[in-house]
Nucleic acid binder design. Structure first.
Lengths: 228, 228
DNA sequence: AACAGAGTTGACCAAATGGTCATATTGGCA
DNA sequence: TGCCAATATGACCATTTGGTCAACTCTGTT
């Protein structure tokens, strides 16, 4: 504990973050089994032994990455109550999730790959924390439905709809780029997509959009003509 | 060609289909690299040598499965024109895609895993056939918007929204089951989810739902579209 | 019975796998 | 200077990888 731990600029911190970033890419691409320590090491520009020296084992590295992603997700959440404005809450949720997807596409894909293989490392989280989070939201949504603030849709499926629609732009990026014939999705694409999702989902479950023009900078969007 | 080819009940047909089914599971779970021929063989209840004898190589097996899934997808599609009813077309699309997801969850996951790793085996398909299919639909959607039959939403993102929302129930099944605390999604769940998605998406982009009571919504199996 | 071709499978191979370890090489402090 | 922990890495290991091959069994035909 003498001097080695200058906590920010140390060799350890630098290398570990390089390894984490490289590993996130490789795991996201090939899944847990398909990723090899060798490939991660090459992506990080280090010999394999060095990678193992820092992270201990492939399994530990994978768990670390999953936990980091869950922490990002948790940091994004805020509590809601039945007296909040449905439009604001739903739109905030969509925008937050979309921002997470955009800022951490590799992490999103890593999560997707983990769930695809049956979420063996995330059982506890799914059945615990996350379930409670979903249930709490669902209860609030249900109260809103009873009050006539939104259509009587199943709140859990609504949450999954938002989840899937946003997640998609990370997980299926290759498909989207292939079909739209682009090299990458730019900032303006993400803004337009977010506005689109807010429009369709809010309107689709009968939620009045938040009256703000001021709350968040948003492109002068292509809002609809209100049918009915 | 003497007697071996009793084409349906032959040993070859039986074993090949067992192998394909097992391989679809394993590839869907672990991706291309993460799946081992050994694991596939065990899942199929055959020795590894036997699997290689029938399918030639891991790569060929994988390509075969992808092609089978693309064929299923193509078989599901029907053409549309700008004179068709938007509500009927959109609802038909959602229901068809949902049925595909339900009937072939492993295939859906296999596709997801392939796209997650950057779709190396599907570049051609994505940039060719699929792109043209999406563009054709997009043009029709745009005409509908101009005619005031739906909100002026971006048709490509609408297609992706439908894609993601339906795909999700296969790819993220583990997450959904974990959160809802179920062992499996039943037929009634799928029906309710499909109705939910139809409601939100049609309403969300300002499409009048098909005058529904005559067109069978829930019970029957196959909804053939009749154009006027 | 003899033959042929499909089906079956263990033995085997070179390469890659995750991981260990012994041995350097550093960099700060006495 | 010498010391020591942190860092770095090649050599190595048992296991697994995708794939080949030769030998075998089975079944139907002659």
């Amino acid at each position: 504990m003498t001097s080695m731990n200058s906590p920010e600029s140390g060799t350890r911190a630098r290398n570990e973050s390089m390894i984490l970033e490289a590993a996130e890419r490789v795991f996201a691409c090939h899944g847990y089994r398909g990723a090899s320590v060798q490939a991660i090491a090459e992506a990080a520009g280090l010999p394999k032994s060095n990678v193992l020296y820092y992270v201990g084992s492939k399994r530990k590295l994978y768990v670390t990455l999953l936990e980091r992603m869950m922490a990002r997700w948790n940091a994004m959440l805020d509590d809601i109550g039945e007296n909040d404005d449905p439009g604001e809450v739903l739109e905030g949720f969509i925008r937050s999730k979309m921002r997470l997807t955009r800022q951490h596409p590799q992490g999103s894909r890593l999560f997707a790959a983990e769930v695809l293989q049956g979420a063996p490392f995330l059982q506890e989280y799914l059945h615990g924390e996350l379930r409670e989070w979903v249930r709490a939201r669902a209860r609030v949504f249900e109260r809103w439905s009873e009050k006539g603030l939104m259509d009587p849709v199943d709140p859990v499926w609504l949450i999954f709809l938002i989840w899937s629609a946003t997640q998609h732009y990370a997980d299926f990026e290759a498909q989207i780029l292939g079909i739209t014939d682009q090299a990458a999705l730019g900032e303006s694409d993400y803004r337009a997509i977010t506005d689109f999702l807010c429009h369709v989902i809010l309107k689709g479950c009968g939620v009045r959009p938040p009256s703000d023009v001021d709350s968040e900078r948003r492109s002068p969007d292509i809002q609809s003509k209100e049918t009915t």
